[in-house]
Amino acid sequence: MIDTLFPTTVIGSYPKPKWLNRVRELNKEDKFSDKKLKEAEDDAAKIIINEQERAGLDVFNDGEMRREEMVEFFADKIPGYRFYGPVRVWGNNYFNKPSVVEELRAPDPMLVDEFEFNRKFASKDKIIKVPITGPYTIAEWSFNEVYDTKKELIFRLAEIINEEIKRLEDAGARCIQIDEPALSTRPEEVELVGNAIDETVEGVNVDKTILHACYGKFSEIYPEILDFDVDQFALEFANNNFKYIDALKEYEFTKELGLGCVDVHKSSVESVKTIKENIRRGLEVVNPESLWINPDCGLKLLPKSSSFKKLKNMVKAAQELREENI
């Protein structure tokens, strides 16, 4: 799919321009039409596509300019979900946790327009990555009023997401990333997650399927995750100081590794030298041909300027390593 060593990419989200957030607020207050919001989203998407191209990335998207929250975005589009109101996540931070109030029905295409737009505005030699929240995480972060078990809900969601991925494939998408941040929060359910992921990618023939997870004790779900039917795992490492890299070395890592080599929780920008050292840690796990380079997670909570600089340094680090033949 990509013939360079160490392809550089993002996990998905990028800081939004303040004016876009403002337009969205005004739209919620009925002071700005949906059409104008769409226009603002289009503009923001073009800017971020351009920004990531300038950073030199190989694989990217629009920084999820049209998405606010990774579960809410999808639940809002799937018939059968309802939002009663925000629920506390911690302290004074609340999120719109959706409730399944009827059996879930098939949604209209959720991401095809987004993909087609991004494809159109990115250079042809670049690859568009499409992040999509996985069934386990959506189920885990929903109230379930309908299905007898969480498992039933997860598998219904897996069907729905599978359908969406196939639509994306038909639209020409080549690289799909399933986001499952909830994956390692309950290690005892790793088999269930695996079965759901297999269902999610059933019959999918895009060039690359990636599973992204963060915030977890990867040692507790490894090597089980190697059985998942995906090509690559994009995991967080920088934030926890490569704590789990040794655990991954205990078994042959039979997939590609997307190495989180830049911390998204600290705005200070890592030097090229540091990132190169981080990338070398990844080479302890997989051979160079199987290593992709990415930040730990989405960048949306960082200041905009740090995001750009982090990506630039990350690209430069990968470039230097390619030239040095590692």
Binding site: R88, V89, W90, A182, T185
Partner: peptide
């Protein structure tokens, strides 16, 4: 922040 028991909530 740390996960609050087996929930999707966090506490300081």
């Amino acid at each position: 922040l740390i996960r609050y028991y087996n929930t999707n909530r966090f506490y300081r």
